[in-house]
Design a protein around this nucleic acid. Structure first.
Lengths: 201, 201
DNA sequence: AGATCAACCAAGCAAGCGCTAGTGTAAACC
DNA sequence: GGTTTACACTAGCGCTTGCTTGGTTGATCT
């Protein structure tokens, strides 16, 4: 009776589900709550999704696909210097967290609630995204812009960025652009120390 | 009938609960699973804890108290240079994540499942811990060891460290000591190129 | 005009949930 | 030696859970 297609209605339902999953957590969100939020009865939900698990998978897939597209576009349309590319990736990441916040919070917090099949599928998407990061970080390392272990640097940077969902307030004074600048500034060595002696304020 | 004291039996139960909460998540962990893991029947559980919520609060409190003690001891017994203090805090944090991993994963993932009263109490503990960090970071900023916004730097550093629970493998080749060194090395500008470069190999 | 189909609903099942009530028992205390 | 206390048990209540079933509706297609 149920369908697994990509109807526009399903997309809208996925967006609403993401919001509820963030508010309540996946386990505490009942199918009745989901249905109510969508303006239908709980039984009707299973016309659009095979089961509750599939809703979670849909939310996370949507968010990760978006992040991947935005990151690729950001890399395509920025300067080719290692610093510019690093900055572009950080800003893209933060902007995704902002515009698509719900889906990403769900991906970060509820990843472990996915059943193995869904996880297998989504892990490839995530790997593709993280590969972009490692590539940009490799370039920065090769250019001497940052130092350290390739693996560790990328993990530390991703951690710092993902942690922002805990404290960043989009209504606050700081733009994603500024945040990205601060982070990149923090980890990049002041390249040529040659000129003015770095002032100690 | 039930008690709320600090018996040693209760501590052991708390440790077991932390493990189950990590494996299954708080919501999916039933009181019957908890009781089974503890070798008793589900009814007996409520002799030690008022309700399921209290078990979660006990787990998180235990972990945070430990982190606080370890951090304070680390600061007391290290050199007083800003760099040494920064390093000591990072290492202490990573060691806590290692030795008390379950409790901290629960604190990070299940914080929002706490009811308001428990959260109010635990938030003071967490604030005390984060205050230590901000103090050390202030010193490092004042010494010119790192630059940037005080608030942002501490958030970025905490993010990078807490994210380690996702990928760090205690059985792997890297010690917490090395990890701390890499992170501090990444964010500290190569200070005065003057004297002997105090190498941290 | 008849057939198809997506989208919904009302009703409810079987299982599992947190938690309570009342009881038993061995050790500790006065 | 009687009372209390700590810890465990059995049994089950009242409720919620994810999901199924069988059926209705209105639009679209042929």
């Amino acid at each position: 009776m149920n369908v697994v297609n990509e109807s526009p209605r399903r997309k809208e339902l996925t967006r609403l589900a993401a919001q509820l999953f963030v508010q309540e957590g996946f386990d505490r969100t009942t199918v009745r709550m989901l249905a109510h939020e969508m303006g239908i009865k709980s039984g009707s939900l299973f016309h659009h999704f095979r089961d509750k698990q599939e809703i979670l998978a849909a939310v996370i897939e949507e968010g990760t696909q978006n992040a991947l597209h935005i990151a690729r576009r950001a890399l395509d349309s920025c300067d080719s210097t290692p610093e510019a590319r690093l900055h572009a990736m950080a800003r893209a990441h933060l902007e995704t967290l902002l515009t698509d916040r719900n889906a990403h919070v769900v991906a970060l917090y509820e990843w472990r609630r996915l059943d193995p099949e869904a996880r297998d599928h989504l892990i490839h998407l995530r790997d593709a995204y993280e590969a972009l990061w490692e590539q940009v970080i490799d370039e920065a390392l090769a250019a001497g812009l940052i130092h350290g272990d390739r693996f560790l640097v990328s993990r530390f940077v991703m951690g710092a960025l993902n942690w922002t969902v805990r404290w960043y307030d989009p209504a606050g004074p700081r733009t994603p652009e500024e945040l990205a600048g601060e982070l990149i500034g923090m980890i990049t060595a002041p390249r040529a120390v040659a000129a003015t002696p770095s002032t100690i304020v």
